[in-house]
């Protein structure tokens, strides 16, 4: 499994042809207390860069974009009642949705951990 990142602070953990998407620890720190997460519907087809989910902090709403193209195959429904998981455990329990990756080539265009770390120095 490899994890890749977007400059918009989404991560995608790639497991075969499926990717688990969420936001990075840096992103949750910047957003502050998450009070609501709007998830995509299962079956939704997304293009890379499409708005996929919305996280709401006390102050503002922020869009989460699809890091790659594909179909949403599962969402983390725990976030409906426990949006704070995005703050407390962003890269594990706070994942948002799983996507069936349409074009593996798109994965290669994303940042690796070192590249992302440089961005958030």
């Amino acid at each position: 499994m490899t994890t890749k990142f977007t400059p918009d602070h989404e991560y995608i953990r790639v497991d075969g042809s499926t990717g688990i998407v969420g936001i990075t620890n840096y992103a949750q720190e910047q957003l502050g207390d998450i009070v609501f997460v709007e998830l995509p519907s299962v079956g939704k087809v997304l293009k890379k860069g499409d708005e996929a989910a919305v996280v709401e902090s006390v102050k503002a709403a922020s869009e989460i974009y699809a890091p790659v193209s594909g179909e949403v195959v599962e969402v983390n429904s725990l976030l409906t009642n426990e949006p704070g998981l995005v703050n407390s455990d962003p890269e594990n329990g706070g994942w948002m949705f799983k996507i069936a990756i349409k074009d593996a080539g798109e994965i290669d265009t994303l940042l690796d951990a070192d590249g992302y770390a440089e961005l958030t120095l």
Partner: peptide, 12 residues
């Protein structure tokens, strides 16, 4: 300051 490290929810 919009918030301190504990965050808006805790401050509220």
């Amino acid at each position: 300051p919009v918030q301190y490290p504990t965050g808006i929810m805790a401050e509220h």
